[in-house]
Simulated scan of single mutants.
Amino acid sequence: MTKRQLKLGALTIGCGGPGRHNLWLDPQLPADASVNVDWYIEIARQAEAALFDLMFIVDSQFITEGSPSHYLNRLEPLTLLSALAVSTRHIGLVGTLTTSYNSPYNVARRLASLDLISKGRAGWNVVTSGDAGTAGNYSRDEHYDYATRYGRAAEHVQVVQGLWNSYEDDAFVRNRATGQFLDPSKLHSLNHQGEHFSVVGPLNIQRSPQGQPVIFQAGDSEQGRDLGAATADVIFTHAASIEQGQAFYRDIKGRAAQRGRDPEQVLIMPGAEIYVGDTDAHAREIEQHYHQLDHSFALALKEFGRNFGWHDFSQYDLDAP
């Protein structure tokens, strides 16, 4: 019988992400948790001690005054994860970087650096940026359309992985007796020419102990599922029921097989909210407390605006056409 092992990831939302706007009011949490590196280090060490497999840092790059508290003021993922890398020993470190507003060379170099700093514990959560307002922060009049975003993403990942293969594992001889630092036969340029990117290479950093960072992805649309099935090692998902989760699992495994991949090499990690108490009833009380604290029509209306560049829908008569 094949032995299977449960994988656990800790996703932190600092002082309050979507659906948790008022989390920062909790006196047990530092009000500045989202920019408090000591708090993150403590959480990472607790997760590592509990044998979690990874810490997962989400990100976005567009806000309004109505954005959740964590979005308004938070640390950049790879900068934060570099601090966690030298404060932990075993836990995986996964950061979100968008393919829409980052160049492949820069992404490859930053993640390869994190992978070396952490001794082979880095992961990349590939996103295309859902917030349309992000375009205005990157000198664009409008966001990329859906097809372009996912076309760029597929090519972006391909280029980044190609750059991670710039050096073979033993390319650096470092022979002081002969004065040879590099075996040039084990250095490879990329010379990529594609629809969205043109990248010569090679990357100026060696391979890490794990070879290259692990690829994560969380898209649920048709294009998102195709991207995950084609490129990801791990796929996050949220399902409203066990049946929906099982259907997603079968769909992704099938798409991976259609692309010539071993479905068993694609890990599916469903999201779950966990409330811990002394008893089941106590845990339910804690759950109810946070739901009452954070769920209101006004907050839900703000959150609805995220899909429209954080547009403020409270200005309308909601009973009107």
Rank of each mutant, 00 (worst) to 15 (best):
G151D: 08
V58F: 11
R121F: 15
N125W: 11
R121Q: 12
F52W: 13
F52S: 02
W164G: 02
A44C: 13
P77K: 02
Y101C: 05
A153T: 14
S118V: 14
E142D: 00
R45Q: 14
Y71L: 13
S103I: 03
L111S: 08
V94A: 05
W39S: 09
A50G: 15
N106K: 09
T134F: 01
R152F: 04
H90R: 15
S100Q: 11
R109G: 12
I43P: 00
Y146S: 10
H90V: 09
Y71C: 00
A154W: 02
R89L: 05
G66N: 15
D131W: 00
V58L: 09
L81P: 03
P68K: 11
F56V: 06
S100F: 02
V58I: 13
T88W: 06
D141C: 05
A153V: 08
G133F: 01
L80M: 09
D115M: 07
L81N: 05
R89A: 15
L80A: 10
L72S: 04
S113V: 01
Q46V: 09
R89C: 03
D145W: 02
L114Q: 10
L54V: 14
E155Q: 09
Y150H: 08
I57Q: 07
S103C: 00
Q46T: 13
A83G: 10
E142H: 07
F52M: 14
T128H: 02
L114P: 06
L116W: 13
D53M: 00
W164E: 00
N125L: 15
N165A: 14
A44V: 12
H70R: 00
G123Y: 05
I41A: 09
Y146W: 05
A154T: 10
Y144D: 02
T128G: 03
Y138K: 12
L51M: 06
G130Q: 01
A135K: 08
T64V: 05
L80V: 07
V160Q: 10
L114C: 12
R45L: 13
S100D: 08
N102W: 07
R140Q: 15
A112T: 07
I41E: 11
H90N: 15
S166D: 07
G133L: 13
G151T: 15
A153H: 07
A154P: 04
L114R: 11
R140G: 02
I63F: 04
A47K: 05
W164A: 05
M55P: 08
E42T: 15
A50K: 01
L72T: 01
T64Y: 07
L163D: 11
V94C: 03
R89H: 12
W39P: 09
H143Y: 03
S113E: 12
T148R: 13
L72V: 05
A108K: 02
A50N: 10
D53W: 01
S67I: 00
D131Y: 03
D115R: 08
R121S: 10
S166R: 04
G66Q: 15
S103L: 11
R45M: 05
G92Y: 13
